[in-house]
Write a protein that binds this DNA or RNA. Structure first.
Ligand SMILES: [Mn+2]
Ligand SMILES: [Mn+2]
Ligand SMILES: [Zn+2]
Ligand SMILES: [Zn+2]
Lengths: 138, 138
DNA sequence: CAATAAAAGCAACAATGTTGCAAAATATTT
DNA sequence: AAATATTTTGCAACATTGTTGCTTTTATTG
């Protein structure tokens, strides 16, 4: 298990540090997305806030995690599947926010649909966020 | 024109004040979405920051504007079409963020698709944000 | 115009995010 | 294994963004 973590970091040409190990572990253990605040609460006693910001940014740049848009000014992050690298994310799945438990999930098996855009617009990336009640809460 | 503004406010049982008129005017004049910061820049010399926050919140509550999720911690707002009232928004259109001019548009004619969710999930609301190059910039 | 209700402004504060730099940790070379 | 070079961290200081209570001002109603 711990081996895995170090492997992931090395595979992405990142030096293995305590904070990166810890934060990556959090994502692997947690089934769902994490906001900056969540991470700070769970790991913040050991690490500086600035380190959390920088680590998240690094992980996004490397394609280890991806960000999920929200309508409430609190971006969330979740693990990418294997094939996102060098900042090129090619996850095309739908995200789900539960109105009850307030968790955010990646629905890895639900692919984002094609959208027919009006003349003149060209789409490069699609984000779909569904809000409702999750499996656990239903 | 100015008549319209007052009409909209009155129709929503809001008293007509200088800040509400001004901010609503901004939305009507501007073809696209506005972030809090935008409004503060365009109207902020006359109004307190707190007033802008409260006005936007009021407009959302009344169904005059709706918020658009983003992945960069800066919620944007845009005018609702006529039939959103009492905080019940029933816009079901796609939003578009231009990577060039950085504007956000409501694609009022593009309805959000149905998404088939995994067993156990029940969806209540769908947000679709497409990123790419807009009409103007193409 | 007076009375009442609502909104705006102000101040103080809390939370969130950013930057430069010195110290510490990690990786690399000898 | 130790020395060196590189990278990351923590800290401090600061900037930006968002919130709350309270007083003054403004708008609505009759
Ligand atoms: Mn995801
Ligand atoms: Mn819209
Ligand atoms: Zn739930
Ligand atoms: Zn554009």
């Amino acid at each position: 298990m711990e081996k895995d973590i170090r492997e992931i970091l090395k595979k992405n040409q990142l030096s293995v540090t305590a904070s990166r190990e810890k934060i990556l572990q959090l994502f692997i253990d947690h089934n769902g997305a994490l906001a900056h605040g969540d991470i700070e609460k769970k790991a913040g006693e050991k690490f500086d806030r600035v380190t959390v910001y920088r680590t998240l940014q690094t992980f996004v740049d490397k394609g280890i995690i991806h960000s999920i848009p929200t309508a409430d000014n609190s971006v969330r992050y979740a693990l990418c599947k294997d094939d996102c690298q060098g900042g090129h994310h090619h996850d095309h799945h739908v995200h789900f926010v539960c109105n009850n438990c307030n968790n955010t999930y990646c629905l890895d098996n639900v692919v984002t649909p094609d959208i027919r855009l009006p003349k003149g617009y060209s789409g490069e990336h699609i984000e779909v966020v569904v809000e409702g009640i999750c499996q656990q809460c239903n």
